[in-house]
Write a protein that binds this DNA or RNA. Structure first.
Lengths: 358, 358
DNA sequence: TTGAAAGCGATACCAA
DNA sequence: TTGGTATCGCTTTCAA
C-alpha cells in the first residue's frame, strides 16, 4: 500500500523534471516516509501535515486527528535537517563547556537542557577545555549546525571568537561569570567578590596563616588572585600556594595538602578551588591524623553534593548551578523570541556555607 | 562589494521564478554568505567550492588556493543543515547515555567523541536515565536530526525502540554490555562474568559474610544478582543488601554502610556497584573506626580515578572505558563506511585490581 | 482552514 | 578538473 503511494509520488516528481531521467534511487531508512506520504494517507496536503506538527492550533480538529493517525501508521519521523533549512530554525542550541567530566559544569548543562528540551530544543555540547582544537574551531563547527542559540562558559573569549559570534547574530548567553558588558546576556556571579567574602570571613575568624589548593583553571586562578589581594589588605601575606592540574579529583586534593605540608604549612586555613579538592585535602589530613578544623580549617567551592551535608568539617561557597542553567535557558529563549532582555547581566550571587567551627 | 555580489545573486534567483515577486528578505547572520558568494569571489562555481571543502583532492591546487582565500575573506561558515539534507549525511552521531552526571559514562563518551570528531563527526548526547521522557521519545527526537550513527548504552531496549532503530537503518553500536545478538555491533563486557569473578575471588580469600551496596540501576542490579547466585554456589548465603538511589555519590556510600551495620553486618566483604560508593563506604568505616580491610574488605567497580592508586584499601574491577569509547567509534565508522564488521560482538574484558590484602 | 508554488543552501549526477 | 541542473524534505508566502 505504501508502495503504491510511493509510485505515485515518484511519478509526480518525474513529471516536474524537464529532461526525465532514471528515477532517483528510492529513499531508504527514515526518509522512506516523508511528509508527503503522510499527507497522501491522510488525504490532505503536505503543508497541512507540517502545520499539524508545528502549529496544531492552526489545524481543524478532525484534520488533526486524521493526520495524527497517518503519522502513527506510517511511523513518520520528521527530518529536522530539511525543516531547519526551510524555516531557518534548527531548534538546536550549542553549549560550550570547559569539560563534561566536571560535575559543576554538567549540573548547569543539565538544568539548561531540561528547560530547553521542554521548549522544543535540543542541546549540542562542545568541550573547549582540554582539547587541542582551538575554541574558534569548535565554535565554527557548532555554528555550521546553525544553532538557534549559544551558551558559553565564562566571559573571556578570543577576539576572533567574539567576532565570529557577533557576526553570526545568534542569541548568546555567557555563564559562570559576570560582566557589565556581555556579548549578549550573561548569567553568573563574581569570582572576585566570592574570594573577597571568603577572605573576610576567614580573617574575621582570626586565621593568620593560609594555604590554597587551586586548579590550573582560569576561574580558579581568578579567585585565588583575588583572595591573596584581599588577604593582603588584612595584613596577611603568609600564604602557601599549591596549584594542581585539571581535572580536579580526590587524589589531586591529597597531593595538594601534601605539598602544602612539605612547604612547611602546619596550622591555619586552606581554601580549595573545588569541593572535590577540599575533600581530598580532608581525607589526606585525616589519614595523617591532622585535626580538622582544629589544626587546619578547609574551605571548598561549589557546594558539590560531596561536601554539603556529608562532611561537616568542610565549609564551602554555595553556587546555585541548576538555577544558573535555568536562568540561562530562560534568557536565551527570550532572546530567541526576539525580546530584548531587560537586564542583560544577571548576578546569581552565592552563599557562604559554614560548617562546624571553621 | 559583497553587497553587489548579493544583488546579482538575487536577480538570478528572481529570473528563475515564473511569477516574480518581491525579493525575499535578505539573509542575515551566518547565511548571509553562501557557497555561491564564495564561488563568485573565487571565480568558480558553487560546486567547486563545495568540492574544495569536502574533497580537496578532487580540485586543482591553484583553484583550491583561490577558494580557500575566498572562504577566509568572506568568513564563510558552511551550512550543515543544507549539506546534510542534500548529501543524506548529517555528520552527526547520536549517543544515548543513562546520565551525563556519571563519570563512568562520560569517560566513554569523551573518547568516543574524540575519535569521531577527528573523523569529521559531531556527537549529540541524549540522556535516558533519570528523565520522565521515555527512551522512545528521546530516540525519535534524536533521529529527527538524521544522525549517521548511534551509540546506545546497554543492550536492553524496549520493543518499540528496537523497531524504530531497525527501521531507521542507521549504523548502531551498543555499549557497556555484551550479547551474542546485538542490534548491529556491540562493544562491552559481561556483567555476570565480572560478578562471578569477584565472588570467586572473595570466596577464595575465605570471606564467608558479605554485604552489598548497589545503585538502583539495571547493570548494577545485574551484577548483584549474579554475585548472589555465585556466592550461593560457594555455599554462601549470608549476604546483607543495601540498595541506594542514583546518582551514586559519597554520601550514598556512607549511608549504604550505615544501613548494613544497622542490619547487623560486622565483618566480611562488601561489594559496591561503583567506586564512588566504595569510597563512601570506606570513609564511613574510617569515621567509625572500623579497620579496612581487616574488619571489612571493600570492593568497588569501575576503577574510577578515585579509587585506583589513591585509596590502597579499596579493591576494584577495572574497565577500560576510554578503550570502549574508541572501539565503539571505530566500529561505528566502519559500519558507516558500509563495511560489515567481522566481529559484531566485541568483549572488552575486565581486570580485578587487588589492593593490599583484601 | 487549506493548498500551490517557490525557495532554504548544499550536493549528486552527469556532461563538458 | 569543472560546471549545469535537479533534487534533498520541509516551510514560507500568498491566495483561495
Amino acid at each position: 500500500m505504501f508502495q503504491a503511494t510511493r509510485e505515485t509520488h515518484k511519478k509526480r516528481r518525474a513529471k516536474r523534471t524537464h529532461t526525465p531521467k532514471k528515477a532517483s534511487t528510492p529513499r531508504r531508512g527514515l526518509d522512506s516516509v516523508t511528509l508527503e506520504d503522510v499527507a497522501k494517507l491522510a488525504g490532505v496536503s503536505a503543508i497541512t501535515v507540517s502545520r499539524a506538527l508545528n502549529h496544531p492550533d492552526k489545524v481543524a480538529a478532525p484534520t488533526l486527528e486524521e493526520v495524527t493517525r497517518a503519522i502513527e501508521l506510517t511511523g513518520y519521523v520528521p527530518n529536522l535537517l530539511a525543516g531547519g533549512l526551510a524555516s531557518q530554525r534548527s531548534r538546536l542550541i550549542a553549549a560550550i563547556v570547559p569539560s563534561i567530566a566536571n560535575l559543576v559544569y554538567v549540573d548547569v548543562i543539565r538544568s539548561f537542557s531540561e528547560s530547553l528540551n521542554s521548549a522544543g530544543y535540543q542541546v549540542i555540547l562542545g568541550e573547549s577545555g582540554y582539547s587541542e582544537t582551538s575554541e574558534l574551531t569548535l565554535i565554527s563547527a557548532l555554528l555550521s549546525r546553525r544553532p538557534d542559540g549559544i551558551l558559553l562558559t565564562g566571559v573571556n573569549h578570543a577576539a576572533d571568537c567574539r567576532r565570529l559570534l557577533m557576526a553570526s547574530k545568534i542569541p548568546l548567553v555567557e555563564t559562570w561569570d559576570i560582566t557589565p558588558t556581555p556579548l549578549d546576556v550573561v548569567v553568573g556571579f563574581s569570582h572576585e567578590r566570592i574570594a573577597e567574602a571568603v577572605a573576610d570571613y576567614l580573617a574575621g575568624k582570626g586565621y593568620r596563616r593560609f594555604g590554597t589548593v587551586s586548579a590550573d583553571d582560569y576561574r580558579a586562578q581568578l579567585r585565588e588572585k583575588a583572595l591573596l589581594t584581599r588577604l593582603a589588605s588584612h595584613g596577611i601575606v603568609d600564604v602557601s600556594i599549591s596549584t594542581v592540574a585539571n581535572p580536579t579529583d580526590l587524589r589531586r586534593g591529597r597531593e595538594g595538602l601534601s605539598r602544602l605540608l612539605d612547604a612547611g604549612f602546619r596550622h591555619g586555613a586552606i581554601t580549595c578551588s573545588s569541593d572535590t579538592l577540599a575533600l581530598g585535602v580532608l581525607i589526606e589530613a585525616q589519614s595523617r591524623g591532622i585535626a580538622v578544623p582544629d589544626d587546619i580549617a578547609i574551605f571548598g567551592f561549589g557546594d558539590q553534593n560531596l561536601a554539603a551535608d556529608t562532611f561537616p568539617a568542610l565549609s564551602t561557597v554555595r553556587i546555585d548551578r541548576p538555577r544558573m542553567g535555568r536562568l540561562a535557558a530562560d534568557a536565551l529563549l527570550a532572546r530567541i523570541a526576539g525580546k530584548n532582555v531587560p537586564e542583560p547581566s544577571i548576578d546569581l550571587g552565592f552563599e557562604i556555607v559554614e560548617r562546624e567551627t571553621t
